[in-house]
Nucleic acid binder design. Structure first.
Ligand code: ZN
Ligand code: ZN
Ligand code: ZN
Ligand code: ZN
Lengths: 133, 133
DNA sequence: AATGAAAGTGTTATGATATAACGGTAAGTT
DNA sequence: AACTTACCGTTATATCATAACACTTTCATT
């Protein structure tokens, strides 16, 4: 959100769908939403192209371990995002990695590796699911 | 390696293929190897079943961002593995996360999240590729 | 306003990754 | 032997993602 770049209609539709869902959706799950189909998006590629742009803008992140996409719930961030993913309810919590990514970059440097980006996905149980046994 | 569980023939073949490759391979890349086909493995599911077992044993890890699998090059580890992945030559470096995963678990706990595991994949440039401009 | 470059789109087809369902086999336990 | 568990082969199918092509929209420059 909050980035002032004019999105095309397709991009707006996909962005709205993800924001509205409040959880990760696969490209095909997005495609199957009524609100998406009713707006004329009916081919996978249409969805993927919108997602590609939205990810480039940082408004959407890809969750590798789910092959899914989620709306960013932070302001545009320079630091890479990271996620906690509940194995029970599939909810995700985005958290930022200001100090963490610095420490990882340093660690990588010790192996002669020049860090450009990272994906961190923590799996486990969210507060609600953990307390429900 | 180094874990004394008796592997089946299929599992041995897949494990050997990955160890020999020394880099991540997709299930279908494994399937296409002569040494694999010559041993009678000829269906994707055969590969996936062997991989599933090898991952459960911790002898193989999945690289989410590549949809690929790689032989573990550490002794069996309790801490989750993490990887640096070169964007140029696709080589991977496994590193362990003893202190890091503790710090991440603590961070997760502050969000009420109970960490069970994690995937950390750092992208960038390995020493060889970085020095070659 | 005309021109031209860059980005976006629709459509069709295809490629790449992963699992379901079934019945059968091998090996260990009692 | 009877039972259990893991494993296997085969076929079909589900799921995720991109290639190729022709066309349109957008917008800065002239
Ligand atoms: Zn974000
Ligand atoms: Zn949950
Ligand atoms: Zn390992
Ligand atoms: Zn490299």
């Amino acid at each position: 959100m909050a980035k002032e770049v004019k999105l095309t209609r397709n991009q707006q539709v996909v962005m709205a769908a993800l924001t509205d869902a409040g959880q990760p959706l696969s490209a095909y799950q997005i495609l199957d939403l009524e609100v998406v189909r009713d707006n004329g998006l009916k081919a996978p590629l249409t969805i993927y192209r919108a997602l590609e742009k939205l990810m480039a803008l940082g408004q959407v992140h890809r969750i590798e371990s789910l092959n899914a996409f989620v709306a960013c719930d932070h302001e545009p961030h320079a630091e890479p995002a990271a996620f906690m993913i509940c194995q029970d309810c599939r909810c995700t919590i985005e958290f930022s990695t200001t100090s963490l990514s610095r420490s990882i970059a340093r660690h990588a440097g010790q192996h002669g590796f020049q860090m450009a980006g990272m994906h961190l996905e923590v799996s486990g149980h969210c507060e609600a699911c953990a307390s429900a046994h």
